[in-house]
Amino acid sequence: MTNTSEAPSADVLMEVKGLKKHFQVKKGYFKKEISNVKAVDGVDVTIYEGETLGIVGESGCGKSTTGEMLLGLMKPTEGSVTFMGKDLTAMNKKELREMRKDIQVIFQDPFASLNPRMTVEELIGEPLKIHTSKTKKEIRNEVVELLEVVGLNQEQLKRYPHEFSGGQRQRIGIARALALKPKLIICDEPVSALDVSIQAQILNLLKKLQREFNLTLVFIAHGLPAVRNISDRIAVMYLGKIVEITDRDQLFAGALHPYTEALLKSIPVDHPSLRSNYQPLEGDLPNPANPPSGCAFHTRCPFAQEICREKAPSLEEHRENHHAACHYPLYK
């Protein structure tokens, strides 16, 4: 019943090539540039129509910055994002605005992402008001329809965000993202701020909507269990780079990158009978302003060799549809 691996022959919706975002840190009277934070440092990924691509990683790995660039909200330092044949990074404001009908976003914090002075009707109707020439009445009818789609009802039209619980607010955010019938929705940590029982409701809702509206989702999160639940393919990021990308089941069955394996083993177990004596990774995430030489993971990697300290590995296909950036991938 689950569509595990999206056929690679499916239509390409978005093509990301050599995407980089470097932030300059300036200090002092003359604003001397002292360092360069490489938040995203060379991301290549292809997003196929109808799939859910999960992007996981710990804080500072650049997953949210990547998401913002895919949305066209942030100009990359280098690289291109091609959406339906057009390069987002070369668009002017007007073109970008037009394009946003097709790429929408769901944010993490449903408490901060909705304007507290707007009613539900205004919030969900706003994209329709801006992008279409529909009348007030038509917009209201559509908003009512959208509310029902996300599991809310007509009586809540005139209410304000503070009258809703976190889960309901996230539903409003989803309805807003759906309003223009986009092709792609970037979900940036959409369930992280929610209670467990509400997380499940939202994950189920996203899956249902994806089937109904034939949506393509990019699901950015740090929680691997949620990512596993919703994604067809998963990309693992570490310090601004994708270190591994493959089908969900393949990733869980045989991770190639030592970081992915450490990440998988760090997740608390599903059941007390699965407790193990796994010794977690030592050390902290390196500072992206001062990343280690060679492979960024070598400082924490149990298998690091001389070459890992000197040369950064590139993302290569080690198995069919299974890419990893590692000099010594784990073959099992």
């Binding site: 689950t2 619980s165 976190g166 889960g167 309901q168 209670d195 467990v196 029982s197 509400i198 997380q199 499940a200 409701q201 994950l203 189920n204 899956k207 929680g223 691997l224 269990p225 949620a226 596993r228 639940n229 969900r248 869980f252 998988l264 997740i267 177990v269 599903d270 699965l274």
Partner: peptide, 22 residues
Amino acid sequence: LLASVPKMTGPVEELGAIKGSV
């Protein structure tokens, strides 16, 4: 609660959500 937690092992299934909120 147990059913609503996405699992790291076993087949990926629809989560058993609890309706409503606290």
